[in-house]
């Protein structure tokens, strides 16, 4: 469940609650941002901006309008995409060649990971390329169904169900 108590305390400008929320979500936000900007230094910069924004805008989050995680995701993806569109970013990242989130997971096998991550990691590596692609576009990059269907050249009606099937294969790893 999401930490409703902490969220409401943060909305009342409680810095301790905010600090706990940072601990809970910072790695996830970092993952999203890093997958978009593909640069450690820039990703940290963006994560910092995102959490400052979270602090400033926390009043605008409402449970009635969805999950706190979803709210964070939207802020994070937007901030990362804004960064990628910036001139400074384009100048720095001329020679980038990366594809999707699985690239980073493969790339970082030697890093010290949380133990529960290892199971998922194996499942990610076994995912069909189409699954990696569809999760990457929808979840990590925030594509709409239409954008995803155009990019992957699949019928728009199948995007939803394909995505669910792909995600379900990952869920098995932690259930």
């Amino acid at each position: 469940m999401q930490p409703d108590g902490l969220i409401s305390q943060m909305k009342q400008k409680n810095q301790v609650a905010f600090s706990q929320i940072y601990d809970m979500y910072s790695e996830n936000i970092h993952g999203i941002v890093y997958n978009i900007v593909n640069d450690v230094e820039i990703a940290e910069e963006v994560v910092q901006d995102i959490f400052i924004k979270v602090w400033e805008k926390s009043e605008s989050y409402s449970e009635d309008r969805g999950r706190f995680f979803t709210w964070l995701l939207n802020i994070s993806r937007n901030a990362a995409i804004d960064k990628v569109r910036s001139k400074a970013y384009k100048n720095k990242m001329k020679n980038s060649d990366f594809d999707d989130f699985s690239f980073f997971i493969k790339d970082s096998e030697d890093l010290d990971r949380k133990s529960e991550g290892f199971g998922l990691e194996k499942f990610v590596q076994k995912l069909k390329p189409m699954c990696v692609k569809i999760i990457d576009l929808l979840f990590f990059k925030g594509y709409t169904q239409k954008e995803a269907s155009e990019t992957l050249d699949v019928p728009i009606g199948t995007v939803k169900s394909r995505n669910r099937n792909c995600l379900n294969s990952l869920r098995k790893s932690i259930e």
Binding site: H30, G31, Y34, F69, G117, L120, V124, I174
Partner: peptide, 11 residues
């Protein structure tokens, strides 16, 4: 599962 996945991507 999304929390897990995104956390996994963070370096």
């Amino acid at each position: 599962v999304l929390m897990e996945l995104s956390g996994l991507v963070s370096p």
